[in-house]
Simulated assay, not measured.
Amino acid sequence: MSSSTAPSSSVAAGSADPSGARRNSKRPKYSRFTQQELPACKPILTPRWVISAFMLVSIVFIPIGVASLFASRDVVEIIDRYDTECIPVDARNDKVKYIQTPGNKTCTRNITVTKQMKRPIYVYYQLDNFYQNHRRYVKSRSDSQLRSNSSANAVSDCKPEDYSNGQVIVPCGLIAWSLFNDTYSFSRSGQQLAVNKRGISWKSDREHKFGKDVFPRNFQNGTLIGGARLNESIPLSEQEDLIVWMRTAALPTFRKLYGKIEEDLQVNDVIQVTLGNNYNTYSFSGKKKLVLSTTSWLGGKNDFLGIAYLTVGGLCFFLAMVFTIVYLVKPRQLGDPSYLSWNRNPGWQ
């Protein structure tokens, strides 16, 4: 008898224990959070609130869109495509052979300024149909090697541009190997226009991603040259053309900053551009363009942001007008049960 009463007393004691009760039940531990009893804001979207919200969005977005469009239209931009024009007429049937043949490939272009351009004037090169976002291309680099000379041998991710003649390549990888090597020089009325190439890269890249003690070594020393060469006496942190190029683009059409002209250009000025047409975009049907551009408070020329703001603001204004007309023509009493489906159609089942 005593043996049977002991278990019953233990069960009774266990039932009084909350943890024991939870073990015998699927009911979760009580809390205001799990039972969704926390204070909450449950706004009722009345017609007036909805119309006011749409009107507020339109009032804010439309002026921003107009200001963005005006800022974009104030940017003066000159684009000159030269990849075909800088090939001699008799060599245009085989452009790849021409670009791969050693020799001087200087080309002269004249650009007419159609609107005053205030300094600084940014010089970009634009490449089309160049997929810098290709997975193998993006992975072919060594960030640790770029940062520190002590990691010069960390080239495991750089194949096939990791070693040349049995020696480590610095900087290694396909990105550095394909460094853009077209050159530009500008003159106006016989006077040279200097191009400032300092400060064209991100400060964070110069200070944290490219080391001051890392110098190019054994670079472009193989049988196949991919692009520009680097000065072996200058550390990578000061070779800003390389730093700009190593920040890969997400789209196949992209621009990269080449330098800045620190002089104003006037209307009808004729800028003579001497190009070194060296970069091979002909093997993959790419295009090369030279871009001169000013900037505004919004940046470069880009109408998308202004159009997007105007579109959203205009749509909200249209919806606000539609809802206002519906509310005035056919108003509904808030919470009227007569609009419930089972009240409108009692025999719906």
Rank of each mutant, 00 (worst) to 15 (best):
Y327F: 10
A250E: 14
W245Y: 06
E238T: 13
F317Y: 07
D128H: 14
R23Y: 12
T106G: 08
K105D: 02
C316V: 00
Q333C: 09
V326W: 12
A13I: 05
C316K: 06
L265N: 07
V244D: 02
T5Q: 09
S4E: 15
A67C: 10
L305W: 13
G103H: 01
I121A: 14
V322D: 13
D213F: 03
K26A: 13
K42T: 15
S9F: 10
L275Q: 10
V138Y: 00
S293F: 12
P120D: 06
S164P: 01
N280R: 00
K197M: 12
V170H: 06
S187F: 04
G306Q: 08
N133T: 14
T274S: 09
S283Q: 07
P346H: 05
I44G: 11
V138L: 00
V66G: 11
Q191P: 07
Q167Y: 13
C107F: 01
S52Q: 10
V57C: 13
T183G: 05
A40D: 14
Y282S: 08
C172L: 00
S204N: 07
W177L: 03
M321S: 10
Y279H: 12
K289M: 14
I225V: 12
Q333L: 14
D80P: 00
S144H: 02
Y282V: 00
M246K: 06
A228R: 05
P120V: 00
L174E: 15
R109M: 08
G65L: 06
F317V: 00
Q167V: 07
M321G: 03
Q272Y: 03
I225A: 10
R81H: 13
K212L: 10
T5F: 06
S189F: 09
Y131Q: 10
H134N: 12
V312M: 05
R141K: 05
G166Y: 08
E232L: 08
K203T: 11
F317R: 03
G313F: 04
I234R: 13
Q145T: 03
G65E: 06
M1F: 09
T294N: 11
W49F: 13
A308W: 09
I243C: 00
L340I: 08
G65A: 04
D74I: 06
N302K: 06
V168F: 05
K260C: 07
D182N: 11
N268E: 14
G20C: 12
I225G: 07
K260Q: 15
Y131I: 07
P39F: 08
N280G: 01
I243Q: 01
N218I: 02
F210G: 02
S8D: 11
S144F: 00
Q349K: 15
F284H: 02
R141T: 03
S233I: 05
P39C: 07
S185N: 13
A154R: 09
